[in-house]
């Protein structure tokens, strides 16, 4: 009897939730508000950038967690807006699938359908690495023309100018090797590093990419006023905060990502598509 009385307020609160669920449209709207997409545009100033790379547009997409809380329609919308922005190059920094491996093949196929004149480059995230079939993600991406960079790099030539795309394995679940990823990269006029988890950057070892694109943190996903997010799950971003930061001439970007993990809610932390334009730094 006493237990029932003790539980009574919780039962009443539950009734409030049930009553709220009579208005699914309102509830959906409420959660959809926090999940409205944004496009974040940034200029990346690089000294002595050759004219052939001036104005180059790099599109950054990360942390889709497709199939967890991302509907097919939503994914299509993101891909369509991304293509409309006419990037020269697309960078993907992991967590394509979430906890649910459901629809995996379909979601990877859709993401891999992205096209850019200078190519689409990807690294894997911890959620991708958790999947027993993560090698298939690499195969499916490669088969569709997406270059997966696992501690490796690729050079892109444009009218004599060289751009180096580097990719490092996931910090938590993979075996990151920045030295291997950056091997020979100093010969390039512009160097872009893709890393899922910003904690990888603690061991940058003097490699100096001009731009580093990262994900993983979702910007905290739930961002309280004054207090900020509960956690970023990342020591590096604890220090720098999400978004754009500078370190020894390197632009480091930690994206809020596109999807959601654990909870189907984003508060004051809208999902984003990043668009970076390379610009010659004034001498």
């Amino acid at each position: 009897m006493a237990i029932k009385k003790l539980l009574q307020p919780f039962i009443e609160s539950y009734r409030v939730f049930v009553w709220c669920s009579r208005f699914p449209g309102f509830t959906r709207w409420l959660f959809a508000r926090g999940n409205r997409l944004q496009i974040s545009r940034h200029q990346v100033h690089i000294p002595k950038l050759p004219p052939a790379l001036q104005g180059l547009r790099v599109l950054h997409l990360t942390d889709f967690h497709a199939a967890d809380f991302m509907e097919e329609r939503r994914l299509e919308e993101i891909l369509r807006i991304s293509q409309s922005l006419k990037p020269d190059l697309i960078a993907l920094t992991g967590d394509y699938i979430g906890y649910t491996p459901k629809y995996y093949a379909d979601r990877i196929r859709r993401i891999a359908s992205l096209k850019a004149p200078l190519g689409v480059f990807a690294v894997l995230g911890n959620h991708d690495r958790w999947q027993p079939f993560h090698n298939r993600i690499v195969q499916d991406f490669e088969a569709a023309g997406v270059t997966v960079l696992q501690n490796a790099n690729r050079f892109i030539e444009r009218s004599g100018a060289r751009l180096c795309m580097m990719g490092v394995d996931d910090h938590e679940e993979g075996q990151p090797n920045l030295d291997a990823a950056a091997h020979g990269s100093h010969q390039a006029h512009a160097r872009i590093l893709l890393a899922h988890n910003p904690d990888t950057l603690f061991s940058l070892n003097g490699h100096a990419p001009h731009l580093v694109l990262t994900g993983h943190t979702h910007g905290g996903q739930i961002n309280f006023p004054v207090f900020g997010p509960l956690t970023y799950f990342c020591k590096y971003v604890d220090q720098t905060g999400p978004g754009l930061s500078r370190s020894n001439g390197t632009y480091i970007y930690n994206s809020r990502g596109l999807g959601m993990s654990m909870l189907p809610v984003r508060i004051r932390c809208r999902p984003e598509i990043g668009l970076f334009t390379l610009d010659r730094k004034a001498e």
């Binding site: 307020p9 609160s13 409420l30 508000r33 006023p225 508060i267 004051r268």
Partner: peptide
């Protein structure tokens, strides 16, 4: 009193969440 306090607290948390979600960003 305890019961009312818990219901009010939960209601406040709910209101806080709604306010956050409709935050004009």
């Amino acid at each position: 009193t305890l019961r009312s306090a818990i219901v009010v607290s939960i209601a406040l948390v709910l209101i806080f969440l709604v306010v956050l979600l409709v935050w004009q960003d």
